[in-house]
Design a protein around this nucleic acid. Structure first.
Lengths: 164, 164
DNA sequence: GAAAGATTGTTGTTGACGACAACAATTGCC
DNA sequence: GGCAATTGTTGTCGTCAACAACAATCTTTC
């Protein structure tokens, strides 16, 4: 008796190379169903896809949105501060800001108090754009509500509040 | 008045390049706190990091674990079936299986009923290894419990059950 | 005040991953 | 028999996390 047979009732026997035709929904996930990480991962992929699609016209991805939002709410932050707050590598933020600055949504202003760092600001154009992005993001959020239910979404936010 | 100022009380004024020294926890996330996607993303990153660390000794990553688990519970599946069930690109599964087959955990057996496809099986070594992986994964799951609470983890699994 | 150490932004590399496109071999359909 | 669909494979592209190294600039220490 193999170890896995002991804890996993194998529903199919195919010791030869049979490869029965099988519906997707009759494939068991076994231990996976008890793992939060698996469900969370699948959900996160769904969310990002919907976000990207909903904000497709304005070509803004989740990470870009988070950067713009934080800068908008805290003008003058350094790149280091933004990176730390959002859990982004500062190396990665460089490229993100390059892109956003090219699109005239953000500007890096040389800090006078610390000449190593940049103070980050939205441009005027960036501020009006962000308002639109927020509107679209709210629409995306409604899609999430429709998907898992209003109450469940609230509970989810509450459960995961510690990770923000 | 700018549009964003209307809905976002800006706590700091730094129109010059000041770049005040600021604690991470006094940086506001603004609209981000209301977005499920942000919390879910941060949580998912935390989970994966813990999973990778907890299964670091055996060098198994979440995706590899999911593939092994599904094959273990459904021996004889084709690559297409596994890919579809787990939401993995079949192109990506090729590399995953190459790696797992090199490590003698999985074997591809040519199907006789459909000579295009492979029937996937765990090796004997793969089965005993998977038992160990499951033990470690369960340990990881306990870390999740400690992080968000036993009841919250249960509720989370329930809320996201539709995505598995 | 000079030397040593830390921080900030930048560049580059690596590897995991999702998405797509193209292809040969094979199967299923009409 | 011929044509469309499927399966595994190879390849490319872009996103992302994780590091490492570097120059410029603070900060600390002696």
């Amino acid at each position: 008796m193999t170890a896995s047979a002991a804890q996993t009732p194998q529903r199919k026997r195919a010791v030869n190379g049979a490869a029965r035709r099988i519906d997707t929904d009759e494939i068991g996930l076994d231990a996976l169903v008890g793992h939060a990480g698996y469900a969370v991962r699948r959900f996160q992929i769904w969310i990002f896809q919907d976000f990207i699609k909903t904000l497709g016209d304005v070509d803004i991805r989740p990470t870009q949105y988070s950067v713009l939002t934080v800068i908008g709410a805290n003008p003058g932050l350094s790149q280091m501060a933004v990176a730390k707050r959002l859990g982004i590598e500062r190396a990665r933020l460089v490229h993100l800001l390059d892109s956003l600055e090219q699109r005239k949504l953000v500007k890096r202003i040389k800090s006078k108090s610390d000449r190593r760092s940049h103070a980050l600001h939205l441009t005027a154009q960036g501020e009006t754009a962000l308002t639109k992005f927020k509107r679209l993001a709210a629409e995306h959020e409604r899609h999430v509500e429709e998907k898992i239910g209003k109450a469940n979404r609230e509970r989810l936010l509450q459960i995961l509040a510690g990770f923000t």
